[in-house]
Computed example of a mutant assay.
Amino acid sequence: MDYTRLDIRLGQDLVKLVAGVDEFKGRWDALKTLAPDRLQSLRKVATIESIGSSTRIEGAKLTDAQVETLLTNLKTQSFQTRDEQEVAGYAEAMDLVFQAWDDMAVTENHIRQLHKTLLRHSTKDERHRGGYKTLDNHVVAFGPDGEELGVVFATASPFDTPREMEALVAWTQKAIREEALHPLLIIAVFIVQFLAIHPFQDGNGRLSRVLTTLMLLRAGYAYVPYASLESVVEENKGQYYNALRRTQKTLAEEPDWEPWIGFFLRALKKQASVLAARVADEDMREKSQQRLHPLSQQILELFHDANRLTLSQVVKLTNANRNTVKVRMRELVASGHISQHGKARATWYELERART
Results as ranks from 00 to 15, higher is better:
123 T>F: 11
100 A>K: 15
118 L>Q: 00
156 A>H: 02
162 P>D: 12
136 D>I: 04
160 D>T: 13
175 A>D: 06
93 A>Q: 06
161 T>Y: 05
135 L>C: 01
101 W>H: 14
154 A>N: 04
156 A>D: 10
134 T>N: 07
169 V>A: 00
115 H>T: 03
153 F>P: 00
85 Q>T: 05
152 V>M: 09
168 L>N: 00
167 A>W: 03
95 D>T: 15
174 K>S: 10
100 A>Y: 13
162 P>R: 09
177 R>F: 10
160 D>C: 05
104 M>G: 14
182 H>Y: 09
161 T>C: 05
84 E>H: 07
142 F>S: 05
155 T>G: 00
155 T>F: 00
132 Y>A: 01
138 H>Q: 11
79 F>G: 09
118 L>R: 00
134 T>W: 07
158 P>N: 08
169 V>M: 04
86 E>L: 09
167 A>G: 02
81 T>R: 05
124 K>R: 14
115 H>Y: 01
88 A>E: 00
144 P>Y: 10
131 G>D: 10
181 L>D: 03
128 H>I: 08
99 Q>R: 15
112 R>M: 08
118 L>M: 07
113 Q>M: 09
158 P>M: 10
110 H>Y: 04
180 A>N: 02
122 S>E: 09
85 Q>F: 05
121 H>N: 10
117 T>C: 11
142 F>V: 04
153 F>N: 08
179 E>Q: 14
136 D>F: 04
140 V>T: 10
101 W>F: 15
123 T>E: 09
124 K>M: 06
105 A>F: 15
108 E>V: 05
145 D>C: 06
88 A>S: 07
182 H>T: 08
155 T>R: 01
121 H>A: 05
139 V>F: 06
85 Q>Y: 01
170 A>Y: 03
149 L>I: 13
136 D>K: 09
126 E>Y: 13
149 L>V: 11
99 Q>G: 13
141 A>N: 07
176 I>M: 13
120 R>G: 15
